[in-house]
């Protein structure tokens, strides 16, 4: 079944007390499951806003966004229930250890085998021996690997990643990048990444550049 997100002639702006800042104007694009997409561009171009609109977190100022899951058009609530997120700041729960963090999405969905699945994922990402470590006892790379695993563990249709390697060194970035793309390939979900990293963008099947309010295929 086809899962897709269609952005149709969307525009977005926000107002400050003094002026209106236009982010982009009449953009159209379709994101399908099974594909990996990178959005690049300078700071302030509106990449994170575009990601939020594509994920159904906020509505565009103009234009429409439609979500199709298993061939059916769905609303934002359903879409969000079928999505996962990876953040630049990792955002692991500080009071939970690694395995608890990983099992959390499954437990929230009522999966009784949550800990078994989480343990197997920990093994897959090479952090089995770190299961009982809290986030502050882990390195940035280890935290992000767990965050990536956490996003994929409940098998969403789409994953949205906001600067997932922004806080990591080159070597760790490569390892996290590889993990993300391997997981996306394995689960067949759509992966949308906002990034400044050319290396990371190069791993995606498609790379779009957002600059001066226009979206173009990156070279």
């Amino acid at each position: 079944m086809q899962n897709k997100i269609e952005l149709k002639r969307i525009s977005h702006h926000f107002d400050t007390s003094e002026e209106r800042i236009e982010l982009f104007h009449e953009l159209s694009h379709t994101i399908c499951s099974g594909e990996t997409l990178a959005i690049v561009g300078p700071s302030g171009a509106g990449k994170s806003s575009l990601l939020s609109i594509a994920a159904g977190l906020e509505a565009p100022s103009e234009g429409t966004v439609s979500f199709t899951i298993d061939g059916n058009q769905v609303d934002t609530l359903y879409m969000r229930a079928s999505s996962g997120f990876i953040f630049q700041q990792f955002h692991l729960m500080p009071e939970l250890d690694a395995i608890d963090n990983l099992a959390l999405p499954l437990r929230l969905k009522g999966n009784k085998a949550a800990y078994d699945i989480a343990a197997s994922w920990l093994d897959n990402i090479g952090l089995k021996d770190r299961a009982r470590h809290r986030p502050h006892q882990l390195s940035g790379g280890e935290q992000q690997r767990i965050a990536v695993a956490r996003a994929f563990v409940s098998k969403p249709q789409f994953i949205f990643a906001d600067e997932p390697t922004g806080n990591l060194d080159a070597r760790t970035s490569a390892s996290v990048t590889s993990l993300m793309f391997d997981c996306a390939l394995e689960t067949g979900c759509g992966l949308v990444i906002v990034t400044h990293s050319k290396e990371l963008a190069a791993c995606a099947q498609k790379s779009l550049r957002l600059e001066a309010g226009r979206l173009e295929v990156a070279a």
């Binding site: 969000r80 996962g84 959390l104 999405p105 929230l108 996003a151 409940s154």
Partner: peptide, 15 residues
Amino acid sequence: YRLAIYASFGTSNRT
């Protein structure tokens, strides 16, 4: 913070 993280893996606001 907790609810925002829960929402990041598909948990609804109601839950």
